[in-house]
Structures are given as C-alpha cells and as structure tokens.
Design a protein around this nucleic acid. Structure first.
Lengths: 132, 132
DNA sequence: CGGGATCCAGCCTGATACTG
DNA sequence: CAGTATCAGGCTGGATCCCG
C-alpha cells in the first residue's frame, strides 16, 4: 500500500511535492471545516458563516475563494434581491471529502488515546524537570 | 457514512471540536511529512533531517516533540557516543498514517485536475478584471 | 446579503549560535 | 550527534469599514 510514498518526501528531481501542495492548500485553519460542512449539501454564504463556528466573514470568503480556485467548491450566484450565493462541493471536492471524513472519524475515535498520551507526556517531562 | 459529521463543525455544548484539534496538531507545516517519512520505518534524527526536504533542525525537534506528546511517535535514546536517538511511529501513529497516506495518494492522483481548475479559475478572474 | 479593502497584532518559522 | 536558546521577519487571520 505504501509503494510510491518514498518519492513524496524528498524529491531530488523536482522542487515540488504534491503532498506539500495539498497541505499548503487545505492545511490552513478553515478549509477542512468548510469542506466537511459542505459535505452535508449546498449552503449559502450566511448559513456557512453561522455553521462554521468561530470563522470570520473575511476568512470564510478567502477560504471559499481558494477552494473554488482549486476546483473543490462550486459557486453559484443568484441574481435575486437581496443577493444570494450558493456553495457546494464539486465531484473533485466530494472525492476529497471521503478522505477528510476518514481523518475526522479517526480524530473522534482516538481522541481519548491522544489525551492520555498528552497527560503521560507532560507528567514525564514535569518529573524530568523536577530532577533537573 | 457521514452520520455524526454534523456535530463536528459547530458544537453548542462544548467549545472543542476533535477535528479542529487534529488540524491544530498535524495541520502545521511539517508534521504530516515527518509521519509519512517515519511510515517507512524507524529513523534517527540526522537521517530525518536529511530526508525531509527543507526542514530546519529546530522545526524537526519541535515537530517530533509535538508528535511524541500526542502519542504518535516513539522516541528512544541510546546512550552511545556520539549520542543516538531513534524515532518511530507508535501503533497510534500507524493508524493515522493509513489515512494520511490515503490523502497523499489523493493529492497525487488529482494533481492535474487541481492544476487545470486553477488555470481555469485564474483565466476566468483575469477576464472579469479586464471587463471591470 | 455577499462581499472587497485596509490595518494590524500575534504566532510560526528560519537563521544562527551555543551546549552536552 | 542531538539537541537548546535567542532573535527577527513574514504570513495568517481577526476587526473594522465600505460598497453593490
């Protein structure tokens, strides 16, 4: 399953790495949250703003533009009054959503394990500091 | 498949979201690259530094500490001379690697589609700007 | 409603130098 | 070899104001 992984990390033949690119794109603070939300279905700007907890208007706009530029999100403008814009995932976006959802599920399933590890680690370092 | 996703985005009952936590943890510039590299097997600090293209010594240390604190990476010190430290994925880290690898594969498979979308988008916006 | 533009603070990061 | 410490700068992202 890991065949081909080797070349992702350091590629002597090219300065670019597709994984790096992906991370630079959706590794920001909000992209994944927006994609996950749009995975539920088409949604308007204002609805997204309310749905994605903590995001600012500016960052939602910026994030949506980036996702649109990457072909992950489709933007449709309705010439109504007041103006209305609907966002939805493209097929490409849906294909990515599958993997993001898997990652999200992992996060939920292993939440407690990570917290235990963190507790154990901080206890260990605190002890080491005490002995200094 | 998406059952339960709803609560990830906005949770009125708690300020924390496991997905947000995961992203804050491994959504940084280097964590994913290091995990992917360690997916190949145990590796020493200096070897990792050479393998992960572009990372600085400082950031490798910081990244490894964080991954260790989260229980994703195991650190083993050998009391030799000169000192030697080996890093490897924990079972938890391996379970995450599976999904990260899937994401990395997605990135490679859809690289061209994303680039086409970007080209189309920039052409579209350039045209719109021209008409201003 | 759905944005665009601007300003600005904070954090992340890289470079560099030093230690055991 | 495997770190730690310090510092400076760039970029991310939040707040705010304005427009169609």
């Amino acid at each position: 399953m890991n065949d081909g992984v080797d070349s992702w990390i350091a590629n002597e033949f090219s300065g670019v790495c597709p994984v790096r690119d992906l991370l630079d794109r959706i590794g920001d603070k909000w992209s994944v949250m927006v994609v996950l939300r749009l995975g539920r279905g088409t949604e308007r700007f204002r609805a997204l703003l309310r749905a994605v907890d903590g995001i600012s208007q500016r960052m939602l706009t910026v994030t949506l533009r980036a996702l649109e530029a990457d072909g992950l999100v489709h933007r449709e403008v309705f010439d109504t009054r007041p103006p209305s814009v609907a966002y939805s995932l493209t097929p490409l976006g849906v294909s990515l959503l599958v993997h993001i959802s898997a990652l999200a599920n992992w996060a939920m399933e292993h939440e407690s394990e990570v917290k235990e590890a963190q507790a154990a680690f901080s206890a260990k370092t605190a002890k080491a500091a005490g002995e200094h």
